[in-house]
């Protein structure tokens, strides 16, 4: 089984490129202190808004901080936030979706109502309102984004469980006397993991995008914590004098999000029924 999946993966050129680019960013984030000796938060009033040069590969910002170094450390924040959101969101959405699909009746009705309700607000608006009125920390932001994004996964998993329940092998398991819980965890849940993993990978990308949009609008994690969106927010005032401040963080977001999406799309084709 694993062997087949692996062989299929080798045919997904774009997914492999995505994996490679993503690996570069992840490694750069992990080994940031070894790659650049410059402290990302060190202010240097004598070197403000310097264009890219040999001493500052990506220039310096409005208070003389090294953009390259900030970019690496911001990668740590943005990537771990994306992964955190995806884990919590998929865990919650998967559990509630499976519960709804498996139990049906009023539990299903209630969960479905909650799913539909939350899906009727654009995630960005929901996250903006939630983060505007509290003291935002990275952990709280993860929670906010997870609580606003779980319904997508829940809806997918619910549909999948409803479908699986109709299949003969599940009926057979019931017939030979398996308990409801055993059927759920032994026979149904493992078969939703394909959908769930695709959903999780796409969520990492979406969370990074939403976080940077939030930061760009001024509702993100407060400074000095650097995130890519936060760097873009700071760049707004200097589009004219220092365009490099906007170019590099935006490029990082685009490359990472695109890589994860390529990877997710590849996974979708591999585990999907084609």
């Amino acid at each position: 089984m694993r062997h087949i999946l692996l062989r299929r993966f080798t045919k997904e050129t774009l997914a492999i490129i995505g994996l490679f680019v993503l690996a570069v960013f992840v490694l750069a984030a992990i080994f940031a202190p070894f790659i650049t000796p410059v402290d990302p938060n060190r202010v240097n009033p004598r070197e403000m808004l310097r264009p890219p040069s040999s001493s500052h590969w990506m220039g310096t910002d409005d208070i003389g901080r090294d953009v390259f170094s900030r970019l690496l450390y911001a990668g740590r924040a943005s990537l771990s936030l994306g992964v955190g959101v995806a884990l919590v969101s998929v865990g919650l959405g998967g559990a509630l979706g499976a519960l709804a699909g498996f139990s049906e009746g009023w539990i299903d009705a209630l969960v479905s109502l909650l799913i539909d309700s939350i899906l009727s607000v654009p995630i960005l608006a929901l996250a903006m309102v939630a983060s505007a009125f509290i003291d935002l920390t990275p952990w709280r932001l993860i929670l906010i984004l997870a609580l606003s994004s779980w319904p997508t996964t829940a809806r997918l998993v619910r549909g999948q469980v409803l479908q699986l329940k109709q299949l003969t092998y599940v009926e057979a398991a019931h017939a030979i006397g398996a308990t409801r819980l055993r059927v759920l965890f032994r026979h149904i849940v493992p078969n939703t993991l394909g959908v769930v993993s695709v959903s999780a990978s796409l969520l990492v990308a979406y969370a990074i995008l939403i976080e940077s949009a939030l930061s760009f609008l001024g509702f993100g994690v407060p400074p000095p914590t650097a995130t890519w969106g936060g760097m873009l927010y700071g760049a707004q005032l200097y589009y004219r004098e220092a365009p490099w401040l906007a170019v590099f963080p935006g490029l990082s977001i685009t490359l990472v999000v695109a890589s994860i999406n390529f990877l997710g799309e590849g996974l979708k084709r591999i585990v999907g029924p084609t």
């Binding site: 990308a205 995008l209 940077s212 949009a213 760009f216 873009l232 760049a235 707004q236 589009y239 906007a246 170019v247 935006g250 977001i253 685009t254 999000v257 695109a258 999406n261």
Partner: peptide
């Protein structure tokens, strides 16, 4: 296309 944030492409 769906990976490029509009606040970045807009700025460019």
């Amino acid at each position: 296309g769906m990976s490029i944030p509009t606040f970045w492409s807009g700025a460019l």
